[in-house]
Design a binder for these strands. Structure first.
Lengths: 214, 214
DNA sequence: CGCTACAGAACGAGCGTTCATTCACTTATA
DNA sequence: TATAAGTGAATGAACGCTCGTTCTGTAGCG
């Protein structure tokens, strides 16, 4: 059954969705017309409606696609982080998040479109139960990581999620919000200092870094 | 010179801008029509053009107005924070930011509209030179604050801006992005743990909090 | 032949903006 | 103080155009 024809159809949808993504994320949902998407993808208006019943369904298809893609990227970034709270590992995590952010700015644009033009109805579930998710997926590994030094007592999954979020925010401000060097120093320096704060706190004078056997 | 009439005009513009803000931030710029704004503000569509030459100028008026309002709120939140890096003061800061975020969600919606539908052209300057600004406005006070204990050596203005941003992000995710308890614990508990990490780091086992005379 | 991806004309509604006009009020003149 | 002239806020119909969607027709593969 799945022959040349089905492949062709998939390629057509691919083209349409790529064009739609590009246009939506630059002009917003209501600022984008089906005619623009048709032209940009090289198909006719009428044909768009053969593949997607309405403009909104096309938008929803994009949301699902990019959400799946993004959660895969996120899982990949986490899967080979073992000793999560060691400065070196946190630097690796920051680097991975940096790449994700810089190569997927459109994902956030899509999310902002949803927040403003759809009352966050498509993305809201992403943020619900993050705490439980982090605990479930990472809990054991993080508890183990926290036993590699004199852990201070905060909830490991909370600490990790907080760092994770801070890194995303940092790179988003640097790129999408055009706040280059918004912390006053270059990116790698900023990340180093942030990690130092997370691991040692800023009231750490007169002592050594204590991770890994302090 | 004339009083009554100018007051009336101001009140009219106030009504128009309030209606525009409400509609723009719920439907986006392109998703909002001048007719909707006219209806919501109680004026005729023609009259809107007596006050604002184009739809875009009306949008820009909103941006300027809410940017001014927001920067005033920000300045207020900072002005009576003295010993900025003490846990108690950080808790106060978090509380102030919480109020700002929860009462001004539309400000961020406006910013997201700008990011998506105008390529961030109206808000970009907000994020440029944050580092220098923080250093200039807060530098001295923060350096002084950092001398109240065994400061660990990171740049005070960077540390403070980072915390500031983390608090904003935290409450934004909690509210606008519908991520209630996204760190897995109630807000005040999350803030307490975040502050503990910032001040002591998570590798702080076997020691006391060292601020204020450590 | 039957099916469907595809094209594009057609439809009615709605868009941002302009227009002629009315009207309340301020200012200038006597 | 009475009146004429001027200002600009306010109205809503109208304009040219674009919108999302539907409809009709064609081309090419299984």
């Amino acid at each position: 059954m799945p022959t040349t024809k089905n492949k062709e159809v998939d390629r057509s949808r691919e083209k349409i969705e790529a064009a739609a993504m590009k246009t939506f994320t630059r002009q917003g949902y209501h600022g984008t017309s089906m005619r623009e998407i048709a032209k940009a993808s090289g198909f006719s208006i009428g044909n768009l409606y053969n593949h997607y019943p309405t403009k909104e369904k096309l938008f929803e298809a994009l949301v699902e696609k990019y959400e799946a893609r993004f959660s895969e990227l996120g899982a990949n970034a986490l899967k080979d982080i073992d000793d999560a709270f060691q400065p070196a590992q946190l630097e690796r995590l920051a680097g991975a998040i940096r790449e994700i952010v810089y190569h997927n700015l459109d994902y956030w644009r899509l999310m902002y479109i949803d927040v403003v033009e759809f009352g966050n109805q498509h993305f809201a579930h992403t943020f619900r139960g993050w705490g439980e998710q982090a605990e479930r997926v990472l809990g054991d590994r993080l508890r183990h990581a926290s036993e590699q030094g004199p852990w201070g007592g905060v909830k490991p999954s909370l600490a990790f999620t907080m760092i994770y979020l801070q890194f995303f925010t940092y790179f988003l401000v640097e790129s999408l919000f055009k706040g280059k060097q918004h912390l006053g120093v270059p990116e790698d320096e900023a990340i180093k200092q942030m990690i130092r704060i997370f691991t040692e706190g800023f009231w750490s004078g007169n002592q050594q870094g204590k991770a890994k056997g302090g």
